[in-house]
């Protein structure tokens, strides 16, 4: 039972990581039906910005938690600006083009950003400072759950609730839902679609930055390529949960995290990915739109 719980919580924290990144994928897809492959890179850039800020503040000798807070704020702002700019440069000019064009543009953007960071920063792995202190009251359960795991789980929970609230109850959220349902119609009734899309990218990128900093602080190292695998896993989580659905992204992330954790624990870590993707295939056979995705009539 103890072993089961250890795997359960391990999967929970891993799944929360996937969920945090998956939220950005799913929001963008929900609004403009684009798989934003550059999202993993925004996550990586957020982590790098966090490292730069943390590096500077650490030499100034600030307390750890305040460094974490400032690093989060700065990298959120910075990544949000990146997300905004990427959309304007790479996706907006292609908005009325066939759907494959922005997809290719997204892949191109991903490769560009990755290589740019490799050249501008370094190809090596860099140590990321331990910004999340081990809190004393977590000692008792540290076998199951570390403080950084708790931070990540709590953050994705808070973010998901806040996002749901934002989309359900605010004016902008309503505009988003309208745009998601039918962009042309929304435009006709006076929704500023361009603004809605920009806001979506800004929010998605901010979440990626939060994920980037927290996960980098948890793992303790970053390099230019970390966005790739994280992006693939998060994208899988988004599809698993039903792409376009916000609770779906979180559920998908958790299911993927648990699948990997239990597969490793009870079978073999050699087969970790095999079981995770087998699960994806099985779920998509029975629920093609994902766990919480809505079956939409195909617009022809």
């Amino acid at each position: 039972m103890e072993y089961f719980l250890q795997l359960f919580f391990g999967g929970l924290s891993r799944g929360s990581v996937y969920a945090l990144i998956a939220l950005g994928y799913t929001m963008v897809y929900g609004i403009i039906e684009l798989i934003n492959f550059a999202h993993g890179e925004i996550y990586m850039i957020g982590a790098f910005m966090g490292l730069i800020v943390a590096g500077v503040l650490t030499t100034l000798g600030w307390p750890v938690l305040s460094i974490l807070a400032i690093a989060l704020v700065v990298s959120v702002l910075y990544s949000a600006a990146y997300g905004y700019t990427v959309e304007k440069i790479a996706y907006k000019p292609l908005r009325s083009a066939p759907r494959l064009a922005p997809l290719i543009s997204a892949i191109g953007m991903s490769i560009l950003l990755q290589n740019y960071i490799m050249l501008a920063q370094t190809p090596d792995f860099l140590p990321f400072p331990r910004l999340i202190p081990e809190l004393a009251f977590m000692d008792a359960v540290s076998n199951y759950l570390g403080t950084s795991d708790l931070f990540i789980i709590a953050t994705s929970l808070v973010v998901m609730i806040a996002l749901t609230f934002f989309i359900k109850f605010t004016r902008m959220g309503k505009a988003m839902r309208a745009t998601a349902q039918n962009r042309k119609m929304a435009m006709l009734v006076g929704v500023n679609v361009d603004q809605v899309i920009s806001v979506t990218f800004i929010i998605g990128s901010s979440l990626a930055a939060v994920g980037g900093v927290l996960i980098a602080a948890h793992v303790g190292q970053i390099n230019f390529a970390i966005g790739f695998l994280a992006g693939i896993k998060a994208f899988t989580a988004a599809v698993l949960g039903g792409i376009g659905s916000i609770p779906g992204a979180v559920l998908g992330g958790l299911v993927l995290g648990w699948a990997e954790s239990f597969a490793t624990g009870y079978i073999s870590s050699d087969y970790e990915d095999v079981f995770a993707f087998l699960l994806l295939v099985v779920i998509l056979i029975f629920r093609p739109a994902g766990l919480l995705g809505k079956q939409r009539a195909q617009k022809v």
């Binding site: 391990g10 924290s13 990581v17 390529a225 954790s261 490793t264 624990g265 990915d273």
Partner: peptide, 13 residues
């Protein structure tokens, strides 16, 4: 899996 974010399951094992 090289490049993974989390190896806690293997460590528990």
């Amino acid at each position: 899996t090289p490049g993974g974010v989390d190896y806690s399951a293997v460590i528990q094992k």
